[in-house]
Design a protein around this nucleic acid. Sequence first.
DNA 1: GATCGCATGTAAGTGGTTACATGATTTA
DNA 2: TAAATCATGTAACCACTTACATGCGATC
Lengths: 185, 185
Amino acid sequence: MPRSNKTEFAVLGLLSIQPMSGYDMRKFVAYSLSFFWQESYGQLYPTLRRLLARRLVSRSVEPAKGKPDRHVYRLTAAGRKRLASWLSEDAKPESVRIELLLKLFFGTSGQPPRQIEQLDVFLLGQKEKLARLDRVASEKLKPYEGTPDYPYWFATLRYGVLLTQARIVWGEETLNRLRSAARKG
Amino acid sequence: MPRSNKTEFAVLGLLSIQPMSGYDMRKFVAYSLSFFWQESYGQLYPTLRRLLARRLVSRSVEPAKGKPDRHVYRLTAAGRKRLASWLSEDAKPESVRIELLLKLFFGTSGQPPRQIEQLDVFLLGQKEKLARLDRVASEKLKPYEGTPDYPYWFATLRYGVLLTQARIVWGEETLNRLRSAARKG
DNA sequence: GATCGCATGTAAGTGGTTACATGATTTA
DNA sequence: TAAATCATGTAACCACTTACATGCGATC
């Protein structure tokens, strides 16, 4: 069973929205999709080259001065077909590894004050993430209200919000419990 | 900046609970930690060998008949120190890639009926996961109530419960929205 | 009679990150 | 004057998964 290269489909999908360069994709993903996806140049550029060789995308070069030419990619008909077939397959559940939880699980080998600090850091990060999600919602998503894309884009953002909120609830709950355990024990 | 081999610390941590074989670790992780961690033999056995060479663990062999001898590993003093130092470091946030959300994001290139089916599959999976978490709570966690490990183990399980519940809420919300959009559009 | 559990391990493959290289232009 | 932005890309590295190999004993 071959390994599915997810970057390939991410690229195809992005190009279904509009023609883009590798640089554009990186920026787009990093800003708008970062809470459930990420791509690095080291993965993006080679994938783009392979996709071009397989005629799933086409490329046009926009000359530039003082910096490399912009390579703008577009979906071909074959690419659109490939994207559609991938979209129709069930996505199988991801496996995640959460280092914070692993550390917490081995808690009795650690120092309670450090654990509380680590949870604080985590909580702060999640709260910032939630704020970022709000910014993305108003800056990027809002303008598309009423368009066909909107319900889908809203759904992915909503996932980020609900999950982040759940992590915040968990973090505060856990902090309280560990703090009161520290006072007693 | 060297890549931190997380399996190494997972092994050290597991051995801080009790001496175990590689096979034991696999089973333990797959049953009790699966919702935030996983390990494969292909990663476990080589790591065990390296850890042994570095004297962070020791090994005793229990002869067996009809199957390979059991290799039981124990933490050494050096291993315990290494574990403690890792535990005290802040865990940096994980980056996840959620294929389902990527597909949903490219929704207008897909077929609404298939998207709804996919969400149904997702929802079912999350509900099963929640049921499994309950089983783990009563079968594995409950007996440890009152012990020093309990608050930590509870916290990790609680994370699983809260996050899974959030995913279920999201899934139902999203299904409703997409279904009513399909009726209208 | 087939498959599962026990129990060790290896080989191959790859998806993905990080760091580097280049260099003009704009901003702090 | 330091650093960020634009914009391409490569090289090195590795952590991790999957599939395979072995083989007994018990269960379905």
